[in-house]
Computed example of a mutant assay.
Amino acid sequence: MTETPKPKILKTRVTLLEMTNRPVYSIPTPASFKLAIMSAKRISLPFYRFLYEQVGKPHHWFVHRTLSDEPLAALIHRDSVEIHVLYVDGSPAGFFELVLNQEPGVAEILYFGLVPEFQGRGLAKFFLSEAIATAWMSSPAKVIIETNTLDSPRALQMYQRMGFNPVGFADAEIEAWL
C-alpha cells in the first residue's frame, strides 16, 4: 500500500492594500500588441479553471483551486463578481476578478495576473490600471487588493506605485501547487 505524500506547506507574508482616491491618470495602451479586454459574463468553469491555473499556479493560488463545480460557480457567477480577460494578439493573456460591494463601499480586486508567457512585456501596469478603473466604476469608497510573498516579487511595488497603500499584514501557510 502506497502512502499519499503530504502536501508541501509554504509560509508567506500577506499584505492588504487599499486605495481611497480614484487615480487621476491611466497607463497608455501598449502599442506593440493587438489587445482586447473582455468582460466574461457567466464565464464557463473550464475556461475559468484554465485562467486560474495558468496565472495562479506559479504563485500557489489556493482558494478556488480545489472547489468542485457547484461551489465554484456559486462564487464566480454571483452578481457582485466581474471577471475580465486580457487577450493579446488573440490569445488569453491574463485576467482580473472583481468583487463589488460585497462589503458596503468596497471594491476588491480579488485576483489579478498575467499568464507567464505574457509577463515581462510591459502589459502588467496597463492591465492593472484597467482593473483599477473598472473597480472605481462601481463608485466605492475604497478599492482593496492583497498580495503575498509568493506572488511576483514586483507585485507589491507595482501596487504601491499605482496608488495602493499597505494597511495590514498577516502570516499564512499555503499548500504548494505541485
Results as ranks from 00 to 15, higher is better:
residue 5 P to R: 03
residue 10 L to W: 01
residue 85 V to R: 07
residue 12 T to F: 08
residue 31 A to P: 06
residue 113 G to Y: 00
residue 54 Q to L: 10
residue 77 H to R: 08
residue 38 M to N: 14
residue 119 Q to A: 06
residue 59 H to V: 13
residue 178 L to F: 13
residue 96 F to W: 05
residue 2 T to V: 14
residue 101 N to D: 14
residue 31 A to E: 15
residue 34 K to I: 14
residue 2 T to D: 15
residue 154 R to F: 10
residue 70 E to D: 11
residue 59 H to M: 11
residue 97 E to W: 04
residue 71 P to I: 04
residue 28 P to G: 07
residue 74 A to C: 07
residue 136 W to E: 12
residue 90 G to K: 05
residue 130 E to T: 11
residue 37 I to V: 10
residue 19 M to F: 03
residue 75 L to Y: 09
residue 36 A to C: 09
residue 23 P to D: 03
residue 84 H to G: 02
residue 8 K to A: 15
residue 99 V to A: 07
residue 66 T to W: 10
residue 80 S to G: 06
residue 127 F to W: 08
residue 1 M to H: 13
residue 43 I to H: 00
residue 56 G to D: 03
residue 35 L to S: 05
residue 107 A to D: 01
residue 70 E to H: 12
residue 39 S to E: 15
residue 72 L to F: 03
residue 5 P to Y: 04
residue 45 L to A: 03
residue 88 V to T: 09
residue 95 F to T: 00
residue 167 V to I: 13
residue 43 I to C: 05
residue 161 R to H: 15
residue 41 K to S: 12
residue 75 L to M: 12
residue 111 Y to E: 07
residue 114 L to D: 01
residue 37 I to C: 04
residue 133 A to Y: 00
residue 162 M to E: 09
residue 81 V to S: 00
residue 169 F to N: 12
residue 95 F to S: 00
residue 141 A to H: 14
residue 131 A to Y: 04
residue 9 I to M: 15
residue 24 V to F: 14
residue 26 S to G: 10
residue 105 G to T: 01
residue 73 A to N: 05
residue 81 V to H: 02
residue 28 P to L: 01
residue 71 P to T: 11
residue 160 Q to G: 04
residue 129 S to V: 05
residue 154 R to K: 15
residue 162 M to N: 02
residue 138 S to N: 06
residue 55 V to I: 09
residue 94 G to S: 00
residue 15 T to S: 14
residue 59 H to L: 12
residue 157 Q to D: 13
residue 42 R to Y: 10
residue 129 S to N: 09
residue 131 A to S: 11
residue 13 R to P: 01
residue 161 R to I: 03
residue 11 K to I: 13
residue 155 A to S: 10
residue 5 P to L: 00
residue 63 V to I: 12
residue 76 I to V: 12
residue 97 E to M: 14
residue 29 T to M: 11
residue 45 L to I: 12
residue 23 P to A: 05
residue 116 P to E: 08
residue 146 E to V: 07
residue 38 M to D: 14
residue 6 K to M: 11
residue 122 G to W: 04
residue 61 W to T: 01
residue 9 I to T: 12
residue 89 D to Y: 05
residue 134 T to S: 08
residue 89 D to H: 01
residue 170 A to E: 08
residue 101 N to K: 07
residue 99 V to W: 07
residue 129 S to K: 02
residue 23 P to Y: 06
residue 29 T to P: 02
residue 100 L to W: 06
residue 83 I to W: 00
residue 153 P to R: 09
residue 159 Y to F: 12
residue 159 Y to Q: 08
residue 161 R to W: 03
residue 168 G to V: 02
residue 159 Y to A: 02
residue 106 V to E: 08
residue 72 L to Y: 08
residue 21 N to C: 13
residue 40 A to G: 06
residue 158 M to T: 11
residue 34 K to A: 13
residue 107 A to W: 02
residue 165 N to K: 15
residue 103 E to P: 01
residue 36 A to P: 06
residue 23 P to R: 04
residue 160 Q to D: 08
residue 149 T to M: 11
residue 103 E to I: 06
residue 174 I to G: 02
residue 155 A to K: 09
residue 110 L to W: 09
residue 75 L to S: 11
residue 148 N to K: 07
residue 97 E to D: 08
residue 55 V to F: 03
residue 117 E to V: 07
residue 133 A to C: 05
residue 28 P to I: 08
residue 139 S to K: 15
residue 121 R to L: 15
